[in-house]
Write a protein that binds this DNA or RNA. Structure first.
Lengths: 193, 193
DNA sequence: GTCTATAATAGGATAGAC
DNA sequence: GTCTATCCTATTATAGAC
């Protein structure tokens, strides 16, 4: 009865990376097994529901990580501008400047997307709600704050696609830079260079 | 020796739709066969290289369609504003208001993405070049035109992801509406409501 | 140019030992 | 909790008739 090699969190981190790199269909059990160092049967011990179960638990894992390391700290006394800056720093790091894909995008595009609909919708909503809260704190109206929050997520996700498609990662850097300057700008005022 | 049921273009249209709906890995030969009404062996007659060959030919097919129906007409004497409007009309129709995915995104995210790299990069570049040309014609500087062109593609692709993830298609409509108003706006001037 | 039939393999999943 | 061994099905792909 060997002891666990990796903690559950470490296993989930490895699975997260594999799903991001290969996509849901693209990540075979053989690859998920190699990434974790666990043979298939061991994976089924952790994830009785198979690959769907893995994806669901990986989403929940990422939700917890984001709540602890990103959304939590955002409830501090920092200025809205500093909070936005911190979020965009985290986004640049997490996506490695546009080189790593978004788990939620990968699962949204999967054939099993119907199974993941609720947690996916929730994940996008939590993200947008956090940005909206910063915008409101900065004095923007509710309507403008919501649109700005949606726009941040739209542009981050879009930049990831364009970078993956073109191989030109400057698009991601430029998009983040533009968001830093524009998201909290007063409404009906100048926004673009 | 039965005659062909569908023209090659019709077959390519059906395959295009299947790849958009199911993704590259998600689209099995069984589904591609059902979508075209051709049994697997017949598909191999048209596409000796199998699924990769199908994806490559579908990309080339879409390139031709876009050149004929979108980029071609854009070389007319219409005003830049009308050209942009026509492109955004076509985008709204092609993506069915955010309900249908982008082929290029699907293939960029596939496990075989390395095989499709060149045509994918080309497809994104041709799209952005067309937008850039409209921006230049409207009097924007080269640098601003390029950034605006990248931004259009980023926001369209991102809106598709957010719509798929949240099920809220108003994001796509709002994004297109915002692009209609902002892409050709004079630089360093007001841009956002 | 389309078909039926089949091969060959990879995929997800399970049983049961230790 | 991890392993070896196996099962079953789906998947890609090919052969060859008409």
């Amino acid at each position: 009865m060997p002891a666990p090699i990796l903690s559950k969190d470490e296993v989930l981190d490895r699975l997260l990376n594999t799903f991001r790199d290969r996509g849901y269909e693209g990540a075979s059990l053989a690859e998920l097994s190699a990434a974790t160092g666990l043979v298939k049967s061991s994976l089924y011990h952790y994830f009785p529901g198979g690959k769907q179960d893995m994806a669901e638990q990986v989403m929940a894992h990422l939700d917890r990580q984001l709540a602890a390391n990103l959304y939590g700290p955002l409830r501090s006394a920092l200025s809205p501008a500093k909070k936005l800056g911190a979020m965009l720093d985290a986004i640049e790091a997490f996506y490695e400047g546009g080189r790593k894909a978004c788990l939620f995008e990968r699962l949204s595009a999967s054939v099993d997307r119907a199974h993941f609909r609720r947690p996916l919708r929730r994940a996008f909503m939590v993200w947008m709600d956090a940005i909206e809260a910063i915008c409101l704190e900065a004095g923007l109206s509710k309507a403008v704050a919501r649109v700005r929050a949606e726009d941040v997520v739209v542009r981050v996700e879009g930049a990831l696609i364009v970078c993956a498609g073109t191989g030109d990662y400057s698009v991601f850097a430029r998009t983040i830079k533009d968001l830093r300057a524009s998201v909290l700008a007063p409404s009906r005022a100048a926004h673009r260079a």
